[in-house]
Simulated assay, not measured.
Amino acid sequence: MPTRGAVLTSDDEQALAAKTASDVLGLARRAEATGFSSVWVGDSVLAKPRHEPLSTLAAVASETEAVDLGTAVYLPDLRNPVHVAHQAATVDQLSGGRLRLGVGVGIGPDVEAEYANLDRTFRERGARTNELLEIVTELWNGDAVDYNGEYYDLEDASIGFEPVGEVPIYVASAAFDPSDGFPRSIEERLATHGDGWLPIGFGPEQYRDGFGEIAALLEESGRSSDTFRKAIYLDVVIDEDESRAIETARSFYERYYPAWPTLSDDQIRDKGAFGPIETVRETIDAYEAAGVETIAVRFTTDAQRKQLRTFAPLVG
């Protein structure tokens, strides 16, 4: 859902309120009616201004009945772990157990500045996120927590209630060569806290190889990969003219990520599926053949409703 896009395309608070009602809550209702199994929101506090994700999902929960509610992705290290556990458990309760928590740490100079403004050390964000997730999952068990770690200390801490069920944690990762293995902090996150994988910028064959690495990692940790959830974050623009679809995406990226250099056509193609609906269908089929179960689609254009209508035949 375009929580960032609503902010980018609104000139004042009245316009933003209207965009939020239409392009966030309204599109969530339409996505559920169309047959989507889940809706997702992104996260940023300062680097890319947008609505706070868990508050947004609480609102979406009241507007929908069955669709799962996910973060793609949430940056928990920008918050206190007790707040993260409390807010997430609340959303899960309000939604009847529909929360799916995709988590990451963020990259780029704008995110580094964001961490600094929130009094967080950027280079320690991976290790600190892992410690935070350990605390969050302990708090979700309902017992009082005593914790003495490298970054956090808690004494007799309890949020007083539990989520409806197990809130699955999807571990995000950016593109890299799977044959090189995962970075150490992500390995630890996958093995210890992960219930699923939610990468971005992986082609279908890369995804298959990457999940093979995860399966081996889980086996080494005494866990089975059979129930590990397989997801991917995929950018999409549907247009009969591929060059026009790519140009639409390029314009979106330039506004959305002003710190990025201008992307080539091939760099944009690597981020998703752009062009006729048949091309998008073939891309989705290739991911499904690689084992992907959930595709979180982001339409990299301002024409959200038109893209949703065009994409609808692919849902199911």
Rank of each mutant, 00 (worst) to 15 (best):
G149V: 10
E155G: 04
I186C: 02
E138A: 12
L101R: 07
L101T: 02
N80K: 07
Q93E: 04
R189H: 05
V82P: 02
V105D: 02
G96V: 08
R120G: 00
V145W: 10
T90F: 08
D180C: 07
I107H: 06
E187I: 06
F161N: 06
H86E: 11
F202I: 06
E155L: 15
L101V: 04
A174R: 11
V91K: 00
P109H: 05
G194T: 14
A113P: 00
H193R: 00
S185V: 04
E150G: 04
I159N: 05
G97H: 13
V167N: 02
V164F: 10
Y147F: 13
E134A: 12
V136G: 03
G194I: 04
E205I: 14
P109Y: 04
F122M: 00
R189G: 13
V164C: 14
L198R: 00
V167I: 15
W197V: 00
E150Y: 02
F176Y: 09
A85C: 05
H193A: 01
A89C: 01
N117K: 01
S158Y: 10
P183Y: 01
A127Y: 05
R98Y: 01
L198C: 00
R98I: 03
G102S: 13
G149N: 08
D92V: 04
S158P: 08
L139C: 04
V84E: 13
G126L: 12
P163N: 12
A174P: 03
D146K: 14
N117I: 00
G96A: 06
D110H: 07
V167K: 05
T137L: 06
D146E: 10
H86K: 13
V111R: 10
G96L: 15
D195Y: 14
E166P: 02
Q93K: 00
V136T: 03
Q87I: 06
E187C: 04
T192S: 07
N80D: 06
E188C: 04
R98Q: 05
L133P: 05
D180M: 15
I135H: 12
D143L: 08
V171F: 04
T137K: 07
E114C: 12
L118S: 01
V82M: 03
G196D: 03
F122A: 01
R79V: 05
F202Y: 13
G142K: 12
V105C: 03
G181D: 02
Q93F: 14
V171D: 00
L132E: 09
Q206Y: 09
R125L: 07
Q93T: 01
I169C: 10
D177K: 07
A116G: 00
H83C: 05
L133N: 12
A127Q: 06
V91S: 00
F182I: 06
V167R: 02
I135F: 07
E124D: 12
A157C: 11
R128Q: 03
D92N: 02
I169G: 11
F182V: 05
E187S: 12
Y151V: 02
S179H: 13
T129L: 14
P109D: 06
I169F: 12
A85F: 13
F176N: 12
S158M: 13
L133F: 09
L99R: 14
E187W: 13
G142Y: 12
G201Q: 15
G142C: 09
P178N: 09
N80V: 03
L190R: 01
L139R: 06
E150F: 08
Y115G: 01
H193T: 03
T192L: 10
